[in-house]
Design a protein around this nucleic acid. Sequence first.
DNA 1: AGGAATTTGTCCGTATGTATA
DNA 2: TTATACATACGGACAAATTCC
Lengths: 257, 257
Amino acid sequence: MDNRTPPNSLDERPRYMQIQAVLEERITAGAYPVGTLIPTEIELTQEFVASRSTIREALRHLSNRGLVDRKQGIGTRVISSGAGSRYQQAFTSLEELFQVSSETYFAVLSAEVISLDPDLALQVDGSSGGQEWIVVSGVRWTKEGGRPICYVQSYIPKRFWPQIAEIKEYQGPFFAFLEQHSRTPIEEVVQEIRAVPMPPDFARHLGLRPGSWSLQLLRRYITSKEVLITSFNWHPSSEMAYVMKIDRTGRSDRDAP
Amino acid sequence: MDNRTPPNSLDERPRYMQIQAVLEERITAGAYPVGTLIPTEIELTQEFVASRSTIREALRHLSNRGLVDRKQGIGTRVISSGAGSRYQQAFTSLEELFQVSSETYFAVLSAEVISLDPDLALQVDGSSGGQEWIVVSGVRWTKEGGRPICYVQSYIPKRFWPQIAEIKEYQGPFFAFLEQHSRTPIEEVVQEIRAVPMPPDFARHLGLRPGSWSLQLLRRYITSKEVLITSFNWHPSSEMAYVMKIDRTGRSDRDAP
DNA sequence: AGGAATTTGTCCGTATGTATA
DNA sequence: TTATACATACGGACAAATTCC
């Protein structure tokens, strides 16, 4: 069919984003005050000469950002002026992970090849198990003072076994080493944080009583092809808080150079 | 046109939710391992005999929950199996905080003014204690199924006491309400994640045995002048994993060709 | 380097269901 | 009960990003 608007009318962004921006501006400017209903989807299709799908896509984003609340049979209500909704995650980058490894020291306790049982496989790469992986275990220490920080287990694909001696000596995070020796770059890191009991054996290495709990950080470093490394860190619950800051950022839209 | 599937084939839920549930189960069961691509939208339309829009709606929800990552030209990649936890929070911005509050509801148990002891004051606003704050306690529930998600305590400056009735009725996160009724916008949010014992009284409200542990999320919403609200969420350790994506570069501000 | 194939993104139009007033 | 407004669902077309040859 025909896309009645030329691909770009001086604005490169998708149609729904443009509409979203206009609506958002009306909300922040007070044209659509907090607490009121904005025009219906049908009315907006008429104003912007767009299909209902496109309008809904714009409204969906406004809803996700917390500016409006949509209810069947009622309409779309403004619930926030927008001042508080433009936040983005800040300071959670790989650089931050490098930082940690420069002020600490990792002592390898063991490195061996194991076959993943189903439960573990689900955590390591989400598979149903059976494959063999290298597991490197150790304790991370502070350089200053020499106190234990956390117990670490890293799961690495078995094909890196020839480099295992090199890995154990490597200063810096394992993922950096593996990325260098792999064809494909890490595209994404996913972190999962849980409260789990500290395994008794790990507790011993950290100088803790058995039966204590831990804050467990699981990080999965993923290339476009596979999980390159999955790392578990068990931190003593009494000494670890994971702190993150979410800063306000002015702009989330892209510009046209 | 014809809606080839009868409105309900023993399952009242919308089609896209059923499909989402099936895909989610395959992910958690390991049929679609982490790091791999799931079938394309087209293939899924064939398997489920649904339109591409319906498939996309299902995938959209999986993406919002942080289980998959979708990329143009690539496909849909599993990035987290979500194993072992019913409730997850993928929290890349405040948007998703709103998302949570739209799929759940908050039942207020009490609201009272208390004087902060030094330890608590340190957590609430970093002061040494003595000031009076309002503390609103309650439980967050799933709309679907009606199961308890977490116990919540929110600390609010005492001067908002006149609005407390309004706050208790407010749909949506408290910080949005407070920001509206305050002169100054929220400038940053600090979040702290800890593993702490679940207080016995809270455990009772969540249907847990005393002595269990929790993943505690503390969020402090800060304006240029003060801490506007500090909120503690205690999640059952067995059902909560905090999932987050970490950017490769950490900077999405600037364009680098 | 360049072009084809693949996959998700965007957009159109229509029809029907469901919650609310 | 009726009207309204959003929710769900269908199907088709082209755009844009990526990969592969």
